[in-house]
Amino acid sequence: MVIEIQNSKFKIKNEKEEKIEKDIRISIRDLNIWYANTRAVKDVSLDIEKNKVTAIIGPSGCGKSTLIRAVNRMNDIIPGVKVKGEILLDGENIYDEDVDVVTIRRMVGMVFQRSNPFPKSIFENVAYGLKINGFLRKKEIAERIEQSLKDAALWDEVKDRLGDSALDLSGGQQQRLCIARALAVEPEVVLFDEPCSALDPVATARIEELIQELKEKYTIVIVTHNMQQAARISDFCAFLMLGELIEFDKTDKIFTTPSKKVTEDYITGRFG
């Protein structure tokens, strides 16, 4: 019920916005990505709106992880990956030669499939991003850590044991810690690469709720293999298959009246 109401609210809002002008944060233009000789992403173009949740769905191996990792250039660290095309972040192509990849990654944060806290204390985990980005004043760091942990809905659970090892947290808490760590450096965009695939339903629900709250401040892109999840939390949805963008539209449109037969087959569970 709640979800339906929310969706209808967005619909009204979106229609309004379309009349004015879409507020686009990321614009992917004719993107192609190769692993050695296999083309994992084929001529994908799509626009990601500011302060919205955009979900990328599709069957395993469709290139959705590759696509999302292109947005903060994480594919750069995999040997043999070749990228052609453009990704404009606030109008600037992040694949331009004179762009500093470190700056891009600070602006575009990422939360990974499996939670990957450092084997350090909870405090140090969140402080890491601040320290490497030149924050040195203790008071400022402490304030930012508190804010990030609050934003990640973890503060109340850990405020009395910030010095404990992050590895002592539960799986869901670890993932929220990773979210807090990503938020601490104040990115504009947060990418989630199947953030709930290793979590139980309760922890998943908390993360989903959190993503809903985070879009107030951030632009969010999420890869998921869980269609219900995409339907629950996203405003826009991109359906990818074999590296091609089959359909991209508002989420309620994709899940009620998709324009392509394949999309309908996939979301109704006929394959995938």
Partner: peptide, 10 residues
Amino acid sequence: FREASLALGA
């Protein structure tokens, strides 16, 4: 670990 660090702009 490396990915987490790089993704934070390290």
